Computed example of a mutant assay.
Amino acid sequence: MDDDRPDVLLTGLLFYDLVLTGLGRPPTPGEEIWTAGMGCGPGGIANLAVAASRLGLRTCLATVFGDDFYGRYCRDVLRRQEGVDLSLSRTADGWPTPLTVSLAVSDDRALVTHGRQPPYSQDALVGDPPQARTALVHLEAEPHAWLAKAAANGTRIYADVGWDPTQEWSKDLLEQLALCHAFLPNETEAMAYTRTDSADAALGRLSELVPVAVVTRGRDGAVAVDQLTGEYADVPALDIDVLDATGAGDVFGASFVAASLGGWPLAERLRFAVLVAGLSVQHHGGALAAPGWHGVESWWRSLTDPELKRAYGFLADRLPADVGPPVHHAPVTPPARSC
């Protein structure tokens, strides 16, 4: 395409993730449990950045790195290994990169995080945002000024929302959807914010507020409505063994954006996002679990189930001619190298 804009603009807090898997059950106070698996790598906003970049999207990330080992390592992985544009990012002297330990148990995980608020806000990092084809954002209770600027310059906003620790689920947050092209909450969040009791009811309410509404439902798949095309889609999840669910929602969002930029029908966009997110939970961590086009093609080529072959038959025409090399997954420990 004759379009030199970034495909995706991102900003948010970056973490260094340490993920432990194979626990079987959570530890109890005073108990030591040995794990069967471990991985480390960039997390937080990096989950979206890596997932998007691995699908061939020009990805611009505005975040803050600490001037410590974790910050240097995450910057190196994102810039050199994953090809993410970090021109809007900054390194903060004396500020420790936030660290999260994720305990993956069954299909879910528990998180323990150490960190401080970064010395630069999202608005300070982004300033007057560059024109981008899309922006992927996490909506927060306090709106960010850059979001309205990005929407005004023609950037299509794809938004999700995090868990509300107050559990008040203020409807005021939904006012920000006036700036958005799409909203992709999970089932719990969608029902809480819309005061409904089912994913379909929440979807109906959200579709009145934003052109494209998506509600993810974990092992039950996802449902979506596109008011611009009049499409409705209800897609089941894949039957995949979950190693680590960290970042799966972010991988879903980045994949949905990639398919949307390709102009795919809603059902294909949703199936693709469900697939890529499903493949990601087979590996450690959030960011480096994203399969990219190589992982998608490998799954498609090895597929023998005739029903899935029909459902995902569109991939035969959607896979790029060059899917790239196999992706790097999360190492047990980061290599000792200069950043």
Rank of each mutant, 00 (worst) to 15 (best):
T21K: 10
L203V: 07
S102M: 12
V257Q: 08
G295I: 09
L13C: 05
T166G: 03
E189G: 10
V84C: 05
D160L: 08
D239R: 04
V212W: 02
V223W: 02
T91P: 10
Q81R: 15
A199R: 02
R301Q: 15
Y158N: 01
A201F: 00
T113L: 04
R195L: 06
V8Q: 05
N186H: 07
F314N: 07
L173W: 07
T21S: 14
L55Q: 14
T246G: 01
T194V: 05
E187M: 05
L179C: 01
T166M: 09
E187F: 04
T28L: 15
T188V: 13
T333R: 12
S198R: 02
V8E: 07
V281L: 06
A224K: 08
G71E: 03
G204N: 05
L177G: 06
V281Q: 01
P335C: 03
A248E: 13
H181D: 15
E140A: 01
E82F: 02
G56M: 13
V225Q: 10
L270K: 00
I33K: 14
G41W: 00
R25G: 08
L86W: 01
G230R: 05
N186M: 12
D317Y: 05
W300A: 10
D76K: 13
S198F: 03
R79E: 12
A213C: 07
T113S: 09
V50M: 09
V225Y: 08
R269E: 10
S260H: 07
G44I: 12
R54I: 04
C60F: 05
L147E: 04
Q131G: 03
L57C: 09
H329P: 07
H144M: 15
R205K: 01
D128C: 08
G324T: 06
E187K: 03
P26H: 12
D128Y: 13
K309R: 15
G249N: 01
D85W: 05
R271C: 12
E268D: 15
D2S: 06
G37L: 13
T304P: 00
P6I: 02
A245K: 14
T246N: 02
A92T: 12
G295D: 06
L303G: 11
L20P: 10
E208L: 13
A52N: 11
L125T: 04
P143G: 06
G253L: 04
L319Y: 00
R90A: 10
L261S: 00
T229C: 03
W146M: 02
P96G: 04
S298R: 15
D250I: 01
D76C: 09
A52M: 14
T28P: 09
G292R: 05
R79M: 11
Y73P: 03
T134I: 04
I45E: 13
S89L: 02
C339R: 14
Q176K: 10
V84S: 08
L147Q: 11
V19F: 06
G37Y: 07
W146K: 03
E140V: 08
T333V: 14
S302V: 02
R80L: 08
S255Q: 03
Q282G: 02
V77D: 10
P335W: 11
R219P: 00
G230V: 14
A36R: 15
Q227S: 15
V257D: 09
M1Y: 07
A46H: 12
Y312I: 13
V223H: 03
L228E: 14
F314K: 02
D160Y: 02
A201V: 04
C60P: 06
V77P: 11
P335S: 12
W169Y: 12
E140R: 15
D107S: 12
G262T: 11
D220H: 13
R195T: 04
A224S: 11
